[in-house]
Amino acid sequence: MRLDDVLPEWHFRERHTIEIDAYADTVFRAIEELTWREVPTFRRLMVLRFAGRDRAVDTRILASMTKDGFTVLDRSDNELVVGMISTRLPARPVPLAGELPADAVRAFDAPGHLKIVFNFLRRGSTVTTETRVWATDERSRRIFQAYWALIRPPSGVIRRAWLRAIRERAENEPVFL
């Protein structure tokens, strides 16, 4: 299920793109295996966000995000979709029930929550990451809007650093023919 299927509408959105000269499976392996050590800017900003809790530098970023409440919603040959449902600020993940978490995110509509979904999409040599947020009620949207104004600039720095690190890893992976 693609990002457009899980969260076709959003209140907040951020999108970043990079060119990566590597095979699709190499790119997605880089996305899944990238560690905090490879993206020090990302790690430093996340330490600030999580009130000083540092991540083990050799921990995989995606794995640590799934420990913190995100769920891999879908994985295809050219797209990885990750998301969560959270209470509005302060954010607390809501467990996703059922066998199809993407359907659970799409259908969820209880007031006082945020649907936060992001992806990595590869088309040709272009790799895009997009983040979308949907607030389930007007109060949650207004509260998140103030937070978004604060976090969007550092979030952009994080996403661009993350994409550069993915490119570095993918383009430098040995190719065996």
Rank of each mutant, 00 (worst) to 15 (best):
R132H: 08
D5W: 14
D68A: 15
F50V: 10
P93R: 08
L62Y: 05
E171H: 07
R159A: 00
G98N: 09
D4K: 08
V157N: 01
R44M: 15
R92C: 02
R13E: 15
E79V: 06
V6G: 05
P174A: 15
F118C: 01
A63R: 14
D109Y: 07
T128N: 02
I18S: 12
H16S: 12
A135L: 02
R139C: 01
L80W: 06
A149G: 14
A30D: 03
E32C: 06
P8T: 13
R88Q: 07
S86Q: 08
P95W: 06
P95Y: 06
N119M: 04
I158D: 05
A22M: 06
I143M: 07
W134Q: 06
S125Y: 09
T87H: 05
R142G: 03
A97M: 13
R123E: 15
G83Q: 02
P101E: 04
A146C: 05
R142P: 00
R60T: 13
V117F: 00
R13N: 13
L96Y: 06
G69P: 01
P111D: 10
A146R: 14
L73F: 11
F50E: 14
T66A: 00
R88Y: 08
R92S: 05
P93Y: 03
R29G: 08
L150G: 07
L45P: 04
V57L: 14
D103R: 12
P154R: 01
S140E: 02
L177K: 09
T131S: 06
A24Q: 12
D137E: 08
R53M: 14
P154A: 05
H11D: 15
F120Y: 14
P40A: 02
E130R: 11
M65P: 00
A91V: 03
R60F: 08
D25Q: 13
T128I: 05
P101A: 03
V57E: 14
W10H: 10
L45V: 12
L89N: 09
L45D: 08
G112Y: 07
A56W: 14
I20H: 06
E38H: 10
D77V: 12
P8Q: 11
L62W: 08
I151T: 02
I116D: 01
A63I: 04
V57N: 10
